[in-house]
């Protein structure tokens, strides 16, 4: 324990509206409040003494920010849904199996019970396991502030390494996942440092839609290969209009290797990431073939 935790202040408002207002008001002042959900990222930073002294805004008690609901446009997942819930939610399992799968690979049980999807998004680590899935599923993020909500496409959410279009006065309210198109196969694979309680070296999520034997739409999203989670349009294009064949897969993999530029870091090497990312694309295509 390296941070002076006993000196930290927590603001806790009775409902979402007041919470949003508190956040918005503080954002203009000298000490903007920092939202706190499950705390699984925040407390790691605090324990390592890596955060400046700041005040927190508790969200954990806000049941308005919980729930997975069926809407005409898709499924809305609220900010505080934990990965433990998402891996067993019947709706998620049925319609977004890749998200259920990704959720089951986050940390281990203890982490899944506390880690929230909005926390994963807001933390913005390029290794966040749910992020490629959200990208591949064309998720839209609902941001709220007291004055007004707005929706942004997840593909435009991040602006750089751990930075996003979210203003400090905004909360992530929910995520809308559009209904998957008929004939879409979802794929998720995490290659981590070990089989559980692992951070991804490379993580991939794809959705490939095949109609009349040809690919009509493809999303290939990867984590841990760039400063943010990324989609690889050139590789997606390689599949469009094609039949799913090993040749198409290896062409997609080739283009992918040309367009991403991962780095060496504490968990893996650029060369390894590049190789594995290519293989994962091939595996995703092979999976869609089945």
């Amino acid at each position: 324990m390296r941070a002076a935790l006993s000196r930290l202040r927590v603001v806790r408002e009775p409902n979402l509206a007041m919470t949003a207002r508190a956040l918005e008001e503080s954002a203009e002042g000298p000490r903007p409040l920092v939202p706190m959900a499950g705390g699984t990222d925040l407390f790691v930073y605090l324990n390592a003494g890596a955060l400046p002294e700041q005040d927190y805004l508790d969200l954990w008690h806000l049941d308005e920010l919980r729930g997975v609901i069926d809407t005409p446009g898709g499924v809305r997942i609220h900010a505080l849904e934990t990965f433990a819930n998402l891996r067993r939610d019947p709706l998620v399992k049925r319609r977004y199996p890749a998200l259920a799968e990704a959720s089951s690979w986050v940390g281990a049980r203890q982490i899944q019970n506390r880690a929230t999807i909005a926390g994963n998004i807001a933390n913005g680590s390029p290794a966040g396991d749910s992020l490629p899935v959200l990208l591949a599923l064309d998720a839209r993020i609902r941001l709220v502030r007291f004055s007004a909500p707005r929706d942004v496409g997840f593909d435009t959410f991040y602006t750089g390494y751990r930075t996003s279009v979210r203003h400090p006065s905004e909360l992530i309210h929910s995520i809308l996942l559009p209904w998957p198109l008929p004939g879409t196969r979802q794929y998720f694979r995490k290659v981590g440092t070990r089989l559980a309680q692992a951070i991804s070296k490379v993580v991939i999520a794809t959705t490939i839609t095949v109609q009349k034997g040809r690919v009509t739409r493809a999303r290939i999203a990867l984590g841990s290969v760039a400063a943010t989670v990324v989609r690889v349009p050139s590789a997606e294009d390689a599949l469009l209009g094609e039949k799913l064949t090993p040749a198409a897969a290896s062409e997609a993999a080739r283009r992918l290797r040309e367009s991403i530029h991962p780095i060496d870091d504490i968990r893996s090497t650029a060369a390894h990431r590049l190789r594995v990312a290519g293989r994962l694309v091939e595996l995703a295509v092979a999976d869609a073939l089945r």
Binding site: T193, R194, A198, I199, R267
Partner: peptide, 27 residues
């Protein structure tokens, strides 16, 4: 298979359990 100490400028770089990797029950 898993355990490797990484160094940076003469100091141990992976000083945490999230990056010095020992086997879990799954491994």
């Amino acid at each position: 298979i898993l355990e490797e100490l990484r160094w940076k400028d003469g100091r141990v770089w992976n000083q945490q359990l999230t990056n010095y990797i020992i086997p879990t029950s799954m491994d």
